[in-house]
Write a protein that binds this DNA or RNA. Structure first.
Lengths: 118, 118
DNA sequence: CTGAATCCAGATGGATACTG
DNA sequence: CAGTATCCATCTGGATTCAG
């Protein structure tokens, strides 16, 4: 009977859907880097992140942060400073990404060695 | 002295660059899903993957597979069948992505519960 | 079956200037 | 400082057709 095979395939489809769900939340050129920046410092201001993430424009940073906020990954706080500054931090949910970030960082080093390095 | 701070910042920059390296290799709408498909079955033909990855077109699949091949993540083998079939499998290097895939799958489930679920 | 080629709409993202 | 608005080139990706 194909019961086991079907169960396996269903499991596999579920896994693929989950992976896709993750990627949908983390897509875009910069999101992971932005999260990585905020994560490392705990709290981070707009201009700090703009500085951390090499190459990003304020237009993009603004947009990506907004999407991350919608996905409840970062929390935005306006501070009573003059001029106004805005602080971003990871939500509890956003913090659950730490393992992934860490893995991506490690794998990135490995990959660079493999492809670029001799 | 700012030695510790500078060391930390340099460490942080390195981490961000690594994460970005990973994302560069894994960007595109479908790559992770494709890898996930091949990974689970060990070997997988073009049409199988086309079927596994919901919504992808053959044009995109072809393109993404080519990029994955360039990055030495998948290996392509033409089989002597009639008509010709092509088999894809992960390289050793591609297999090092398993941890990330697994984590992304788990996080995807978590995220879906958090955002979509009540 | 496995692609490559073409066409084309819509998304992405940089540069720049502007606002509160 | 933290965005927003506008303009515009490039990229993305679907649909369809064709080829080996």
């Amino acid at each position: 009977m194909g019961c086991k095979i079907e169960a396996f395939q269903q499991e596999q489809r579920k896994r693929m859907r989950s992976v896709q769900d993750s990627m949908d939340a983390l897509n875009g050129k910069w999101k992971i880097s932005i999260i990585s920046s905020i994560c490392c410092y705990g709290k981070r201001r707009f201009s700090d992140i703009l500085n951390d993430v090499e190459g990003i424009s304020n237009r993009m940073l603004s947009k990506e942060l907004k999407e991350l906020e919608i996905n409840q990954l970062v929390k935005r706080t306006v501070l009573n400073t003059q001029p106004i500054t805005v602080q971003y931090e990871l939500t509890e949910h956003g913090n659950t990404l730490q393992t992934i970030i860490s893995n991506l960082s490690n794998w990135g080093i490995l990959h660079r060695k493999k492809i670029v390095g001799k």
